[in-house]
């Protein structure tokens, strides 16, 4: 038996998300009370300093966490459905490994220009990451597409091959970089939301809304695809179109996420998995519930990242795995007990 009905879980997450977001506003190097935070939101901040901290630093960061978390987890659910593999994640289509090479190239070649040399408010690293991710996905997709359509098995293998190649390129770039670059590369790969700006939030927000509004029309197709591609075709699904659309949307979503927040691992792989264990594999509920849960997880992780080593900060990506992994293990143990 399933432990949760889908509607109930989504309801709980919808209540939980604003609560954790508000909580997140109150934590950090400067602690602000719930009342002060609520007051500031409704337009009467107790001081200009608090106003700045809330609206210029914390709020964009929380919104970025919500959008990135939602995009990573929902695209994870989509990829697991498309590949019919509960262990697939968005990185399988090459987007993360490509992005990571793009970012490393920028860090190593552009060096000092990164801090100052911002192009329309986005760093060169972000742009490098997005372009790298886009090119890698395109390559993986091309490799797997023939006259007969796109083979997800070939795509999986091509993704692994491109991933390995990207790993090697990354190591090569790391090998030739100095200490400062090395630190930047590794920090970037851990995933970090500290660079949040309103510009990044708006771009990420548009992408998140776009994905969340387009995914529902393909949820039934994804359900049918779990049976197999030929079975889905016999149920009236244009499989090739669905694949193309979902891969493009995932590449866009993950590409932009990685560009603004680096490689935040775990959310895309485990969050849909956890939600599926709770409410089952029906994508009509799985995708929105995963998105909400990913947002909640990333907001909590980022809040903790800001306070565990005050006055310094931890990269957010470290916290997502530390928080999510034990929860996942508990769920697995519970499943085992039920069976």
């Amino acid at each position: 038996m399933r432990h949760f009905s889908a509607g109930r879980l989504i309801g709980i997450l919808l209540i939980l998300l604003p609560v954790v977001a508000l909580f997140s506003l109150t934590v950090g190097t400067v602690s602000i009370s719930w009342l002060e935070a609520l007051g500031a939101i409704f337009g009467n901040a107790s001081s200009a300093q608090i106003d700045t901290i809330l609206f210029d630093i914390r709020l964009p960061r929380i919104l970025l966490a919500i959008f990135v978390g939602a995009v990573l987890a929902s695209t994870g659910a989509v990829m697991q459905g498309l590949f019919r593999n509960p262990l697939a994640d968005p990185s399988l289509i090459g987007v993360s490994s490509g992005a990571s090479v793009g970012a490393s190239i920028m860090i190593v070649t552009a060096g000092g220009a990164i801090q100052g040399g911002a192009l329309v408010g986005l760093s060169l690293v972000s742009i490098g990451a997005f372009v790298g991710g886009f090119l890698a996905t395109l390559l993986v997709y091309r490799l797997a597409t023939s006259g007969m359509g796109t083979s997800v098995t070939t795509m999986l293998l091509a993704g692994i091959a491109i991933g390995a190649l990207a790993g090697a390129l990354n190591s090569l770039l790391s090998y030739f970089s100095d200490n400062d670059m090395l630190r930047q590369i590794s920090l970037w790969q851990m995933g970090n939301l500290s660079g949040a700006s309103w510009l990044k939030v708006s771009i990420m927000g548009v992408v998140a809304v776009l994905l969340m509004s387009l995914f529902p029309r393909d949820s039934k197709a994804l359900n049918a695809l779990l049976l197999g591609e030929s079975e889905a075709r016999h149920l009236g699904i244009n499989v090739q179109w669905v694949k193309r659309r979902l891969i493009a949307l995932t590449a866009l979503g993950v590409g932009v996420s990685v560009a603004v927040a680096g490689l935040v691992g775990f959310v895309g792989l485990i969050m849909p998995h956890i939600i599926r264990l709770m409410i089952g594999p029906d994508h009509r509920w799985l995708i929105p519930a995963s998105g909400l849960a990913g947002a909640v997880l990333l907001v909590i992780a980022d809040s903790l990242a800001r306070v565990v080593v005050i006055p310094a900060e931890l990269p957010t990506g470290i916290l997502t795995a530390i928080l999510g992994a034990p929860f996942f293990v508990i769920l697995l143990l519970q499943q085992r007990k039920d069976v």
């Binding site: 019919r84 509960p86 039934k220 359900n223 049918a224 779990l226 049976l227 197999g228 079975e231 149920l235 009236g236 699904i237 599926r276 089952g280 594999p281 029906d282």
Partner: peptide
């Protein structure tokens, strides 16, 4: 053969037949 290794209930599997 249909290789389905996601934990749909029988209800949900049969429901897929209503997609068209």
């Amino acid at each position: 053969h249909t290789l389905l290794n996601f934990s749909f209930t029988a209800d949900e599997v049969v429901g897929l037949g209503r997609i068209p």
